[in-house]
Nucleic acid binder design. Structure first.
Lengths: 198, 198, 198, 198
DNA sequence: TATGAATGAGTTTTCATTCAT
DNA sequence: GATGAATGAAAACTCATTCAT
């Protein structure tokens, strides 16, 4: 049963944390949502903080795996960048609650943040690696790969979040299906060629 | 004394809210920081929420004014975009605490968020307007101005935030002086010409 | 101006105290209602408690005077009791807010209560005196005047209060004009002849 | 333990509320008196208001049951009225704290009051029913049963309260044993035959 | 493993009172 | 006499965490 119980707590926690943010989320609500007693959560996690961290680590791990897997299918840098964007955008659309949590809590100031930002850095690193290879192979300009990767991550994540909030009634599945391509098209156009006419 | 008292509370509140985030900020700390009694805050603001909202509205108003003022100095769209970025980046560097608050709390889910996002939309609109003029005048490609402005806002703000966190020991003044130009250069290069080699 | 200011505070205080009860009444509300600054109340009364006590003493004094005056017009004990009831009922109807205050706060437990109950005793004494004269003059039975006067006061005041609450939309004037006679008739019938058929 | 804990909170609450009145009663005191932590009260009752309402509803329910039970033992209207008075007087003497609360808070103005007065009306209704039967069976005069029942309730309750306050050092048990009969005698004499000599 | 009643430190908010002008 | 900004003690309420069952 353990696996199942932990799973239900996880699901409930993502939902409640995303709805309310870390501080306004109550262990009571998570317990109710998960259909277990409050004590049960504490049997599996030592604290609210630990639960949250476990949650985010799990989510980020999954996201990184998903992105890496999808990217390994493509080789050419230009296409690789598109594949990467497609993977991240689609993942965040599918897990909108997780996306909210990600952006809302990275900037919140406390101990947790360090661990968090490390994870974000990893996501940025994936972008950076693609950029570096592209530069080396002569596909991309001699840009600052680190800074540019951060900017790209910002452009991508904020765009996704805006859409998630705008179409709050759509399911993650629907959002991912209908909005991924337009968003990635926009980003690709912007990133590849810039906005200048020639 | 009223003006002065409210001013001190404002300053103290920005600081404490930025250090801890809305939920972890204590009215006690704000009062101590402002050098007034806790009751005094409640004499001027009906609640913690009202104080926070007043604060953010004030900050966003100031930011918008600053940006608009700096932009009116430039006419040509290409240069105008640079002026805009320079203004926003420099403002956020100078008011790093406000910047943190801005990004951390927009995505946090509660009643406040709506008012907030409306302000963010205004900031995005400033970018959008520049894009639209640029498109009309033939300087920019036929891009989707709305979506692109969001992406640009994301790229800009996330980049600034990362730097603020990285160089946490630098004052806003120092950050603005040393980092504005490199960051704007990077963004301009990215946005103008994209990353493709030719 | 002093007389006027104190008068306005008095009026406002009766209203607010009656609406909310002593503890829930705020000095702020009284000040606003009176159209003066909060400090002004403290210039004239040393404390909320003193204001309240002054108020009640004043009200009870007025009531006693009113009752005694109306009663001196009648001589015969039987008619005197009716006159007394008429006076009290009519006064309480006209000053419904005061009546509420009277009954609600006599039983509230704190230091004030002693002074209060002393006043109530005086009101009961007026009844008792009438009963005693009536007994002596052979008009009334050999009843326990003290206890009976309390019972009569209870019957009268609770009846009035019920009507005040029931017809909450009527003005004191209207209530006094339309309800005094029926209520006094009922009480007189009850007290004079009892409910037994013969 | 639940039953016991709630019971202890109830007992403590009646005591503290009666000693201080609703507004001056502190949850801290109730908790101390009950020997539980403050949070425990909030685990069982959502607010001070809810605790108070639960308390009064419980008390009034008990009182009504007690009165109805004792009255069902008597059939003849004249005796029934005495039985009713005996039951109410004796109950209020035994639960003097509850009696104080009852009279002090019915007239205090807030949301609670409506629920309260509804209960009081029920107590008055019990009296009214007895009067109506008595009138129908020819034992009582053709009085207005509704208004008279209110007056009787007022006479009875105010009399009891006065005694409770006068002999503040006596236990409820002692008061009920020694004072019930004299008080009921007085009331019965007054109500049955009135005060006129013939 | 799972439960949920109990805890108490921590927080927001209220409001009578003061006092410099 | 009158003002109203400032105060701070007091109170209600919250909620992560514990622990006996």
């Amino acid at each position: 049963m353990s696996r199942e119980t932990v799973g239900m707590i996880f699901e409930a926690a993502v939902k409640v944390f995303a709805e309310r943010g870390f501080d306004r989320a109550k262990m009571d609500d998570i317990a109710r949502e998960a259909g277990v007693a409050k004590g049960t959560i504490y049997y599996h996690f030592t604290s609210k903080d630990e639960l949250f961290t476990a949650l985010m680590n799990h989510g980020l791990q999954k996201m990184k795996e998903y992105v890496r897997r999808r990217m390994d299918e493509v080789k050419q840098p230009t296409l690789k960048l598109r594949g990467l964007l497609e993977a991240e955008v689609s993942y965040l659309f599918q897990h909108g609650t997780f996306a909210k949590l990600l952006l809302a809590e990275v900037w919140s100031s406390n101990e947790r943040q360090y661990e968090f930002r490390a994870h974000i850095h990893e996501l940025e690193s994936i972008i950076r690696e693609v950029l570096e290879v592209g530069i080396q192979e002569g596909d991309f300009r001699e840009i600052n790969a680190t800074e540019t990767s951060i900017a790209i991550f910002g452009a991508m994540s904020v765009t996704v979040l805006q859409e998630v909030f705008r179409d709050i009634h759509l399911s993650g599945e629907e959002l991912a299906n209908t909005r991924t391509t337009p968003v990635v098209d926009m980003l690709e156009m912007l990133l590849h060629q810039g906005i200048l006419k020639n």
